[in-house]
Every structure is written in C-alpha cells, then in structure tokens.
Write a protein that binds this DNA or RNA. Structure first.
Lengths: 342, 342
DNA sequence: TTGTATGCGTTATCAA
DNA sequence: TTGATAACGCATACAA
C-alpha cells in the first residue's frame, strides 16, 4: 500500500528522451507531432499508468473542466430529471458536473454563485430560487464571459440565455382544456411568488377565462404558502367549502394536483364529473395516482440536454463573442382520467 | 465589459507592501500573523475583489476540494434525496459535490471512477450499478488513501467503508408484518441481480416464511427484468393469474408497490382484504397513492449525511491511518392502508 | 517536427 | 512575526 507518486509528463518524457512539451502535445493529439511519436508516447503513458492532472491543466488554462448546476433542490422529480439530462451531455464532452442547492433561499443562491465562481466553473446552469428577484449575483459570470444559462425558473431581466417553456401559453392551454370539458368555475392554486414562472401560468389561466367570457372570481384563486402536497390539500378543502365550489381546479404542479385528488376523494367528490383536475409537469406520479392526473408536459430531460449543449457551444466560441439566445420549448396538455369528461 | 484579470495574493501583497506569503497566511488565519495584519489584509482583499483560486491551492496541495458522487441515476427519489443529504453536509464544509451517473452500467461505472480519480476528488461516495460484481476499479482510491464510502448498494467484498441498512432484517420485518396481518401466501417480486441488496431483502423474506412455518412456493417468487412500474404490473398480473394466487405481495421498492396496487385495482381485487401489499423506501409516492402503501422506511437523506460526514472525518485523519467502518442504520415498517388488515 | 523557458496562483520550507 | 524561493503539473510562446 505504498503511496506512489503520480506519473507526470516529465516522467514520460525522460523515459523516452523527449521533452515534456512534446509529450504534452502528443497526449492531446497535436497535429505538429508525428503519428509515430504520438503513438509511442501514448503507449508509454499507458504503461506507466499516467493520469492527466486536470487540476494543473485547469490552472494553466485558467478554466476548470466543470459545469456548475445551481438549483433549488435535487429532490423534485422535474429537477432531478433536468440534472440527469445535463449530466449525460456534460459527461460525454468530458465535463464534470458540480451540483449546488439553493433550497429556494435567495441568500444561499448568492453565496453559491460565489462558490461556483471561485471554483472556476467553465459554465453555469441555473434555475432560480423561488423568491429571487435581483440577479446582480450573476453579473460576475457575464462580465467574465463565463457561459450562463437559466433554465425553467428564469429571471425577469434579459441578462443571459435561457431554456424554458412558454408558461403563459401552457397555463392558457391547460385552462382551455378544462373549459372544453364543460367546466366553467375553474379554480387556480396560486403557488410561488409573483415573480416566478407560476405567475405566468396564472396569467395564462386568467386570459383563457377571459377569452371564454368566463368571470374571474377571486374566491377561486387560492394562494399557497408552499408548493407541497399538504398545502394543496388545505387549499382544496377551502375551495370545496365554498358556497359555490369550483367544478375544476388547475394545479400548476403535479404534486399539487395529487393533493387536490386526495382532498376530493376524501370528500367523496367524483373526479372528473364533479371536479375536473389538471396538474403540471408530467411527473411519474401523475400516471400512477388514481384517477390518473391530466397534466401539462414539461420536457425536463430535454431541457437539461439543451442547457448543457448551449454551454458547450458557447465554450467553443471565441471569448470576444457575446451570446444570448432563448429556447422556448413546446408543451402540450396530456389528457388523463382526472379531467376527461367528454 | 472588460475581462479584468483576477486579483491574486501578489496584488494584495504589493498594495500593502507585504509579501505574498504573509497574505496567504493571513487569509487562512495563520496564528503566526498578527491580528492587526490579518484584519488589514482581509479588508484589502475584500476591497480589491479578491477571490481565492481554489484550483491553484488544489494543485499545490495535490487535492481538490470536491467530493465525487457516483450513483446509478439521480432520477430515483431515494438517490436524489441521498444526494441532497450529501450536498448539504459537503457544502457546509466548503466542498463541491461532483455528480456522475453510471446508469446501472458496469462499464460506465468503471470509466467514471477513472474520470473522478483523474479530477482529484478528495473523496468518493458510491452506490453501485445494479450488476457490478467486481470492485477492482475502486482499488486506486484505496491505494491512494482517498476516502471511499459505499452507500446503500454496496459491494460484497469488504474493501471500504459503507453506509447501509440491514436489508436482510428489513426484508424479514416486512414479511413478518404481512404474516402478522394473517397473510400466508406471500409473493415476492424478485428485482435486481443476485448480487444486489435486493437479494438480501429476498433472503429476509424467505427466512421469515421459514420461521413462520410457511411453505416457500417458487410460483410466488416472480423475477423482474427491471425495477419499473410496468414490470411490477406485469409480474402482478402473472401472480394473480395463478390458480392459487397470493394473498399478499412484498415489493422491494415503492415504485413496484404502486404497480402492484395498480394491477390489483384494475382487476377489482380488494386491498388489503384480498391482497395486502408492502413496498420499500417510503418514497413520497407511497403516501400519495390510493390506498396508501405500507413500506419500509429507508433513511435516504440521513444516509447521505452520514456518508459525507465520514468522508470529511477521514480527510481530517493522517494519511497513514487506515479507515473502514460500517454504519448499519435501523429501518422500520411503516404500516399504511395497503396492508392493514387488523 | 521538436525543444526551451516561463507562468498559472497557491502553499510550504527555510531563513531572517 | 514576516519574507524569499521553490514547487505542484501542465501548456504555450518562441526558438531551433
């Protein structure tokens, strides 16, 4: 169990009577080195058990080989799928993926951007904390031309590239679907802050009602403290206690949707006949719960893949070039038993 | 948008007419520097917008400040919770967390250990791919005394520390619970390979039957190709098609358990009266599905926290010291509607 | 096509 | 208590 020192390019060089620079170039397939020398060097490197020191290379080049991911949590199905998509693409390109969780705290998010910045990530992919409004803490990445992509929970201001769905359109589609099923007292579970993507979904909901000439009733819009199963149950109970209860509920997250189902079932309310329900995300749970939950498809893995690809693409471009583009992904309603009345 | 160069300890030093070593020491609160100098240096560092270059420090010290996590996937609830636990502890201690997914492929796992090894992780936490039998690819960490902790899906051979539950005992407890509810034809969904923790759960199941003097019927042990909802439904259909079907099913993962519920409900079989069901993990879904799924508690976040703490603890110890310890966590059956007959 | 020399930013050793 | 210097391993500008 001897703690052998690592083999370096110098060791390889001296063994072959070459210079370290030749070895360095050969190992990276530099065209200026003869094929013969390259293969000889590579063979020897293998034999000697050489492992490149990415740390030294990073220091030298002033860039690490890692992509930072800053998300509220890794525990939500949507986000873990997103991360999975990022990791697969990054891995293929030889990048590490560094995870950081803001736990939906603005302060943590600020601290973590600092940490990621300090560890010289090559790029950063971020989904904002629920209540983040300011984005000054990302300015350092932009100033340094470090590729930055916001995904899903994006900021208001247009400071960097983003990968997102059209939450407004999605909210509108979901509501229109409920209307098409004959519902006309459609409630909305108002989760998230006024600055979040949830608010966009709400706008879509409001507009769909307007387009259908349905009245907007404040009673049917229930504010949630948190995006949790329990809060959804509470909110639903409140709605169903109304003198004039809703005939449909739009829950802008599946975990809320299953809460609605739970509450309705406990009260013996028939789904979807008396209460139609639609969620959001198409989490695995949506097709497992009984009745199966209608939802809006949210392409998590794909959004991760696109985000990572964007970072890689930016890294290839000359530093001088500015980059900023927006991927707006399509989403569709997935109709299941919880809302199929016709 | 000027690409300003980073401030280094030299810049701070020359501004204050000190040496770089003094600055370096001061920034790390070396006791050999006067309080006055320290505070002066720190203040100036702040003003100048200094950010320590962890890459350089890592190169110098031949160790990065990151912990590698190698798991089959981040998409399973158990694993994403585990990762969350690790990340929180690591973050607090100033470590980055690098994620790698083996996708349950032995070959990928081998390649990823190489990559993590190459990027000089300070420690590594691993949950093995489903079919990994050999562990030679971890030997390099052991040889180099790089802290290595296996968690949950651990290897057979006793090569490194591990954090795990007693899967045998858990399987036994789950089965005993079903027996206590009056079931005597208890089926088992045999997921995973013969080398996995699932096999331990199966042994617990078999032994519980034996202890209760119940016969072991091969027909009631159905082999699954994969740990998926769909495979569980298929397997359950097969079981319920038997001339003499089971009166209980032990599904060694909640995602399988909900598949069992689905299949039974479609066939109009009463749960738990005609078929009692227990899952494993206590994933969120277990308390959402209808009827709620009994399960075995699997302390995911805690296991992550313990794993990370172990790594940190090892990193404090002198390199010469060997370390190897086993955390065997307790698990209990959580009884819910899917198995409560009495 | 290959070699020489230097620097990336930090920390540790030795000296003052 | 502080300073000078070397070293970590690699990649590049410049020479040959």
């Amino acid at each position: 169990m001897i703690n052998k020192k690592d083999v370096t390019i110098y060791d390889i060089a001296s063994k072959l009577n070459l210079s370290s620079s030749t070895v360095s170039r050969a190992l990276r397939n530099s065209p200026s080195i003869s094929k013969k020398t390259i293969s000889k060097i590579k063979k020897t490197a293998d034999e000697m058990g050489y492992r490149p020191n990415t740390l030294a290379a990073s220091l030298r080049g002033n860039k690490s080989n890692s992509i930072g991911i800053l998300v509220p949590t890794v525990k939500q199905p949507f986000l873990s799928s997103l991360i999975s998509g990022i990791e697969v693409i990054a891995q293929k390109a030889g990048y590490n993926v560094i995870i950081a969780q803001s736990h939906d705290s603005y302060e943590d998010e600020v601290a973590l951007t600092k940490a990621l910045y300090g560890s010289r990530v090559s790029g950063i992919i971020c989904s904002l904390a629920m209540h983040t409004k300011k984005t000054a803490h990302f300015q350092k990445f932009i100033d340094k031309k470090i590729p930055l992509v916001f995904v899903d929970r994006i900021p208001k201001d247009n400071i960097a590239s983003r990968v997102m769905i059209d939450n407004y359109a999605a909210g509108r589609k979901a509501t229109m679907h409920l209307i098409s099923q004959g519902c006309n007292r459609i409630a909305y579970l108002a989760a998230g802050s006024d600055y979040s993507i949830f608010n966009e979904r709400k706008k879509g909901y409001l507009n769909a009602l307007k387009e259908a000439n349905l009245p907007i009733e404040e009673d049917l819009i229930v504010k949630l403290d948190d995006v949790t199963y329990e809060d959804a149950i509470k909110a639903t109970n409140k709605l169903l206690d109304l003198k004039n209860p809703p005939d449909a509920i739009f829950a802008p997250a599946d975990i809320l949707g299953v809460g609605v189902i739970k509450s309705a079932k406990i009260r013996g309310i028939k789904i979807p006949e008396e209460l139609a329900i639609i969620g959001f995300n198409d989490d695995p749970i949506a097709s497992i719960v009984d009745p199966e939950l209608s939802t809006v498809y949210h392409p998590s893995v794909k959004m991760g893949e696109i985000s990572a690809s964007k970072i890689l693409e930016y890294l290839k471009k000359p530093k001088s070039e500015d980059f900023m583009d927006i991927s707006l992904l399509n989403t569709d309603v997935i109709v299941r038993a919880s809302s199929k009345r016709k």
